[in-house]
Design a protein around this nucleic acid. Structure first.
Lengths: 147, 147
DNA sequence: TATTGTTATACTCTATAACTATA
DNA sequence: TATAGTTATAGAGTATAACAATA
């Protein structure tokens, strides 16, 4: 499931509808390219996402779950599958022996890098067509939306 | 799996990172509120999405699949579950007897409306904090991103 | 022959609850 | 007692392939 931003009945004016449509398009295009690249490596979206997160540094299982916004029990399975393929490994945490750190293997790091390379233009560089002033403008508008 | 917009290694500048982070926040907040409202009706996100789509008008199973960007075989199951709960029904298509139209029941329409009502402020009105000139600006920037 | 929808199958993701090992 | 992670279980979404009915 994934992407299409289903909108609740919004105020019916054309401008608002168009903006919401465009926001949905941005998200859809991003996920589409991302999942397509993941599939080339026989990875699911979740697996690719975990690998990308771990490529930035090892994380305790619990924190991984928080990042993914799911229950910790699910992370066990995802990391299991990545481990079975030699892309991720579990390490002990020195300071707290209850904790297990998920960390990418060498091959995991290479795969993460390859996956990034094989991303379509948009997913690799979503703001590529905006110059700096436009990016500032966009930042301001998004901040306002969430305010 | 859902929401957190995992970014590929982007150009490292702070501004770009912030904008991507904000885009991820917008999407996450939207889905969070949407799924929460769906859960109040014991509906999954996909089921709620289908119900919302059908509330706008009946659709052939095939078109429903295209909207959801998944295989038609999956739609069978989703519509089955909504049908089992009396929210959706299948109708024959007059012009082509191969086609089955998925359509909301009376109760389905009521549920769709209630769900919309129970959405959080942001999901119900994502652009609520932007005035018209800001919406135009945002539309222009998003168009440029996708160009 | 091609298309629509379904069925059958298998895998992944998901949450809940119970379990273990540490703290 | 409380916390980190796992296991067990069950439900839902997903794709692929094969099938029936209709075009």
């Amino acid at each position: 499931m994934l992407v299409p931003m289903t909108r609740p009945k919004p105020p019916g004016d054309q401008l608002t509808l168009e903006v919401l449509e465009l926001l949905g398009d941005v998200v859809a295009r991003y996920y589409e390219e991302y999942d397509k690249a993941a599939a080339e490596f026989t990875l699911t979206g979740s697996q690719a996402r975990v690998l990308a997160l771990l490529a930035l540094g090892p994380l305790p299982m619990r924190q991984l779950a928080q990042r993914l916004k799911c229950e910790p029990s699910n992370v066990t399975g995802i990391v299991d599958r990545l481990t079975a393929r030699g892309l991720v490994e579990r390490r002990a945490d020195e300071s707290d022996r209850r904790v297990k750190l998920a960390a990418p293997t060498e091959e995991g790091l290479r795969t993460a890098a390859s996956l990034r390379e094989s991303l379509g233009e948009f997913a690799r560089e979503p703001l590529g067509r905006l110059d700096e002033p436009s990016r500032r403008q966009l930042r301001e508008l998004l901040r306002q939306m969430l305010a």
